[in-house]
Write a protein that binds this DNA or RNA. Structure first.
Length: 484
RNA sequence: GGCGCUAUCGUCUAGGGGUUAGGACGUGAGAUUCUCAAUCUUAAAACACGGGUUCGAUUCCCGUUAGCGCUACCA
């Protein structure tokens, strides 16, 4: 740590605060990632907070789903998870503080009344904002009604004039006229806080220094700033992250396909690939060149942590591009050491109810051979089955293309040659086949293509002789002899 | 509707008062020949529009348009 580091700078504290009303979706995952990267980059603290004050829609099952998604992506936190549902006393106390400071008041309007008025206003073409009528009730009268047990929500008294602004680390200065800000509800009539209150109460209580969240919260921010002021609390740095869109440029949702992070795990995506892809959606490390002078896009988690900074966050929304994700996935599968890839592949096998029958070393060798052309972890449990067990399906299209005419008969004969061969290596296997082809007066290519289908069940595979070496003499003989 | 935000190839983006506007994904073409979903080479592809400011704007300012967000006793 250098002397120039200002000693007054507070250590960074950030949080990810999902609402457990659904699984961890890609937008939330990216927000969590950015928070995590920022915390690690600055040596700060990452807090996980579950915003479950909407009891109707929240569930413990969803919490588990969110944690599972975070774990899969390698997103860690230092404190929590804290549950807002267990911190209700704090919110009530905070609301009371705001009331005591003269910035909030009880509202006796019922939900039905409000809805009716809103509908009326909309129909009349007026903005459907709360008309602040309960704010005009004399304090003593209001106190009496509350004491008498009348149900009341607590609303924040937004200043009548002027404006509220904040400096966003991504968007710069953002300003809202106070006249546009509704007297929002802090505490519902049942005593449960709304989001507006609980975030602020917690963000202050947890001593957060930076609020990194989706840009959909920009319009909520002035309401929160107003509360910080009413409470006499110091403002954190707000950094809003642009949204992730579907291919049609509307907000990413179920109708665009998978939106839950775990769905990508199930689709055979490697977690590091997903994380790398996500990190580069709406953020850029700037001009980092690779050895060819091209912009680098593949970054390890450590590099991401090292490079991450708030000013690399872009202001415009980003479209989620599945093709690019698929590319990251192939790059990562290729770069993975075979033994690191192994557990992920075994997971796929388990899910596909597939049992490899070959020895460990053989499996490792096959993975090594296959990974440069795998696009997805699923490939290992589908197209690549023939490398790991003796039961596999043959692609009918490949068979129809390459196992034609007298090729099958020749392959059976070739099988016999291999059976009689004294040695069996990649080079010797090739020599045998080419010699056989010459002897028969046919092109080697035809036999090679046919043998590929016979040995792997696929029309596409690595170099045939490498495949043969990986499979071993016995299997090659067996499979070639069985061609029909 | 009101308020807020945004605007570089189809997509993710770099760049920035003077550039052949760079890269990646995807797409097209070619090469390789033992298949291709691999590899290599290569091509097409962008500064939304209109006004300013300026010797000069894609870059700065304003407006228009478009998109997105918010507009609940949801979060």
């Amino acid at each position: 740590m250098s002397d120039s580091t200002p000693s007054f700078k507070k250590p960074v504290r950030v949080r990810f605060a999902p609402s457990p009303t659904g699984y961890l979706h890609v937008g939330g995952a990216r927000t969590a990632l950015f928070n995590c990267l920022f915390a690690r980059h600055t040596g700060g603290t990452m807090i996980l907070r579950i915003e479950d004050t909407d009891f109707e829609r929240s569930s413990e099952e969803m919490v588990e789903g969110i944690l599972e998604g975070m774990r899969w992506l390698g997103l860690s936190w230092d404190e929590g998870p804290f549950y807002q549902s267990k911190r209700l006393a704090l919110y009530k106390a905070t609301a009371q503080k705001i009331i005591d400071a003269g910035h909030a008041y009880p509202c006796f309007c019922t939900k039905e009344e409000l809805e009716a008025r809103r509908a009326e206003a909309t129909a009349a073409g007026r903005p459907p904002m709360y008309d602040r009528r309960c704010r005009r009730i004399a304090k003593e009268d209001a106190a009496k009604r509350v004491a008498a047990g009348e149900a009341a929500a607590i609303r924040f008294a937004v200043p009548e004039g002027g404006s509220t602004s904040f400096d966003d680390a991504v968007f710069g200065k953002v300003e809202f006229a106070n006249a546009e800000i509704e007297d929002f509800v802090l505490l519902r009539s049942d005593g449960i806080p709304t989001y507006h209150l609980s975030v602020v109460a917690d963000d202050i209580d947890m001593r957060l220094t930076h609020i990194l969240r989706g840009a959909d919260h920009i319009s909520n921010t002035p309401k929160q700033v107003l509360q910080y002021r009413a409470l006499g609390a110091e403002l954190p740095v707000f950094a809003h992250v642009p949204l992730i869109l579907g291919p049609d440029k509307t907000r990413l949702s179920k109708r665009h396909g998978a939106t839950s992070v775990i769905a990508y795990k199930q689709m055979g995506i490697v977690p590091e690939a997903f994380r790398n892809f996500l990190a580069l959606l709406g953020w850029t490390p700037g001009n980092i060149k690779d050895e060819n002078g091209k912009d680098r896009e593949i970054f390890s988690s450590d590099e991401l942590v090292k490079l991450f900074s708030l000013d690399g966050i872009s202001k415009s929304n980003a479209v989620f591009d599945n093709d690019k994700l698929a590319w990251f996935n192939t790059e990562y599968i290729r770069a993975y050491p075979a033994d690191a890839l192994r557990p992920l592949i075994e997971d796929e096998w388990k899910q596909a109810d597939f049992k490899p029958t070959r020895r460990d070393a053989e499996i490792a060798q096959a993975i090594e051979l296959l990974k440069p052309r795998a696009r997805n972890l699923k490939d290992f449990a589908t197209a690549f089955k023939a490398y790991f067990a003796d039961e596999f399906e043959t692609d009918p299209a490949a068979a129809a293309k390459f196992l034609t005419g007298d090729v099958p008969a020749m392959l059976r004969e070739l099988g016999a040659r291999y059976a009689a061969a004294a040695e069996f290596t990649e080079a010797s296997a090739e020599a045998v086949l080419r010699g056989f082809a010459e002897e028969k007066g046919v092109k080697a290519g035809g036999l090679i293509n046919g043998a590929r289908v016979a040995l792997t069940g696929q029309g596409v595979a690595p170099s045939l002789f490498a495949v043969m070496a990986a499979l071993g003499q016995e299997r090659v003989v067996k499979r070639l002899s069985a061609v029909s």
